[in-house]
Amino acid sequence: MELILAIGIGVLVGSGVWLLLRPRTYQVIVGLSLISYGVNLFIFSMGRLRVNASPVLPSGAPVDPTQYTDPIPQALVLTAIVIGFATTALFLVVLLASRGLTGSDHVDGREPN
C-alpha cells in the first residue's frame, strides 16, 4: 500500500516537474496541477495510511484516538485543494492574458529564436 502510493506520488511529481520545465504555458499549468496532486497526497500521507478507519466520531462516547485517521493533514490538504484551485485559475488567466498580449504561448512571452 505505502509502496504504491509512494511510487504514485513520485510519478505525479516527476511528470509535473518535467512539464514545469517545458516552454509552453499550457504544459506548465498541467505540470503544476500534477505537482499539486502529488504534494497533496504527500502531505496527506504524513498522517500515515489507514484503511477502513472511521472518519467520524461517535456522538458522546469517549474517543480512542488510535481508532481514527489523523485529521490534521486532512484539514491541511482540504484547504490546499481549494487554494490550489484558486492559483490554477489565476495562472490560467495570466496565461491567457499573456497569450493575448504577446501573441505567443511561450512562457517568456516570445518565441525562441
Binding site: 505505502e2 509502496l3 502510493l5 509512494a6 511510487i7 506520488i9 513520485g10 510519478v11 505525479l12 511529481v13 516527476g14 511528470s15 516537474v17 518535467w18 520545465l21 502529488g38 504527500f42 500521507s45 504524513m46 500515515r48 495510511l49
Partner: peptide
C-alpha cells in the same frame, strides 16, 4: 528528464520512508 526523474524518485523515497 533527469531532473524530473530525480525529483520524482526523491519524493518516492521520502514519502515511503515517512509512511
Amino acid at each position: 528528464l533527469a531532473m524530473a526523474i530525480s525529483a520524482g524518485m526523491g519524493m518516492t523515497l521520502i514519502a515511503y520512508a515517512v509512511m
